[in-house]
Amino acid sequence: MNHKNFEIINTPIQINQVINKVEDRNAGAINTFIGTVRELTKGKKTVYLKYDAYISMAEKKLAQIGEEIKKEYPESKVAITHRIGELAISDIAVVIAVSTPHRADAFAGSRYAIERIKEIVPIWKKEHWEDGEEWMGDQLEHKPYPEGKPGKGDLN
């Protein structure tokens, strides 16, 4: 059995395996976030997506996010799996599981993880439409990088 808590894989994500990694007798809550492939973006119809990653660095950055959550919530446990390769509509792209003694921290940690993935983890999505394809850039809806890249504080 694989106990790696932060991984990039190219096969379907088994949600329960991610959840199992954060089970803890002191946990009062396990919050899971499941990111799926959406068909319509700004009116444009996606046929399928392709994800690619700088795998070794991406796994390190996922682990860094786990450390950041642990710093804020010392009793938390975090596991994140991101899938790459070709994904169809409704396929699961990412699963985040966070366990904490109390529910508010599990919600907050899980939310933090997905936002942080979109800032610092080297994974890229290519949307394929009926009439074309394009590598997508920064998907953040609330915090565009001022100079096209994260600031110093975002990276450490």
Binding site: I117, K118, K152
Partner: peptide, 22 residues
């Protein structure tokens, strides 16, 4: 890395376009 950081022989440099995971 920042633009002023030093790269030496044997280092592995990567160019990372704006990311879009999740």
């Amino acid at each position: 890395a920042e633009d002023q950081d030093v790269v030496r022989e044997g280092d592995l440099v990567a160019f990372i376009p704006p990311v879009s995971g999740g």
